[in-house]
């Protein structure tokens, strides 16, 4: 897998760091996949998925969101879902401009699933959406993660800093974003899903404390704008990347959905070529080095990327 660093720009002129990974040779109609890691995860954390997709002929664009950890502008302290959505749009437009094609598929992890739905609701050239532990009710998930319903509080009640998954977040930008755009609400998810005619799938662990399988099933029933598929994973936890044996099973299924062209529920996981153990390990270590070296370069340039 060959990975190159590119820059995309949001409509407000902020830089989004993008990694483009492609096979040495690819077909003219190779699927273009834009992939977003979830909250508190970097694009290098989804390297094994990129490796698998590229190994099966796809061209993969990954990005770190603005106002987040990773190589893009801003700090996670100021995280908003709108920032994640703007970053996704920037990466999609970069992919289209680079590959000179409109059709793009989205792979989203966790909270990035909400951004994917909101983008696809307004972009008819999104061909399909696959999520892993995809959040459908952002308000409820954030309440579960933080232990309190901060989004329902009055602004003056908010703490100065909210620790979220090991990171200090200023709750005001997130709270304001949520109030102004309703981007974290379940109702917004349903509205988006109704507007998406492309196939949509979500792999959710039955023991996920932050995303409820039943909630996802209901959302897909209520937001039945096209084919909807829920894949139940008999695992516990939200961070499924921790179990590489489970990841290989999920990868096989996700890759078959991401690169396939027929109905998602008919996708054949057996047709997927899986990356070798060593290839996954090598890619993980190589991408960590690439990430660190880009961080060092950004510091030298005086960029705010962290």
């Amino acid at each position: 897998m060959k990975t190159e660093r590119l820059d995309a720009w949001t409509s407000e002129g902020r830089r989004v760091a993008v990694w483009r990974s492609a096979p040495e040779d690819f077909a003219p109609d190779a699927p273009i996949v834009v992939m977003s890691p979830g909250f508190a995860r970097r694009m290098r954390d989804v390297g094994s998925i990129a490796l698998c997709l590229v190994g099966n002929g796809a061209i993969v664009y990954r990005f770190d969101s603005i106002d987040h950890i990773g190589l893009s502008d801003g700090d996670i302290r100021n995280f908003t879902l709108t920032g994640m959505r703007q970053s996704m749009i920037a990466a999609i437009e970069l992919a289209r401009a680079t590959e000179n094609r409109r059709g793009v598929r989205l792979v989203a992890m966790s909270l990035a699933n909400l951004a994917a739905y909101q983008v696809a609701a307004e972009d008819k050239d999104i061909e399909r959406i696959m999520a892993l532990s995809g959040v459908v009710d952002g308000h409820r998930t954030i309440t579960e993660v933080t232990g309190r319903d901060y989004l329902s509080m009055a602004r003056e009640e908010l703490p100065a800093i909210l620790p979220v998954m090991g990171h200090d977040v200023d709750p005001v930008p997130l709270w304001t974003d949520s109030r102004e755009t309703r981007c974290l609400s379940y109702e917004r998810t349903i509205r988006s899903l109704k507007a998406i005619s492309a196939p949509v799938a979500n792999c959710v662990a039955e023991g996920d404390p932050w995303v409820d399988v039943g909630e996802c099933t209901t959302a897909y029933t209520d937001g039945d704008g096209g084919e909807r598929l829920v894949i139940k994973l008999p695992y516990s936890g939200h961070d499924l990347g921790r179990n590489p044996v489970a990841v290989m099973t999920i990868l096989e299924r996700m890759a078959s959905l991401a690169i396939g062209n027929g109905p998602m529920h008919d996708a054949d996981p057996q047709a997927v070529l899986m990356p070798t153990f060593d290839a996954v390990l090598e890619a993980r270590i190589a991408e960590r080095q690439q990430d660190f070296s880009e961080q060092r370069a950004a510091k030298t340039e005086g960029s705010p990327a962290v």
């Binding site: 994973l233 179990n243 590489p244 489970a246």
Partner: peptide
């Protein structure tokens, strides 16, 4: 709306990779 199930993870994997 379709639902599918993946095969369960084995006990050994849940112990080796779990956070217990």
């Amino acid at each position: 709306m379709f639902t599918q199930n993946l095969a369960p993870v084995s006990l050994i994997d849940s112990v080796v990779f779990g956070d217990h």
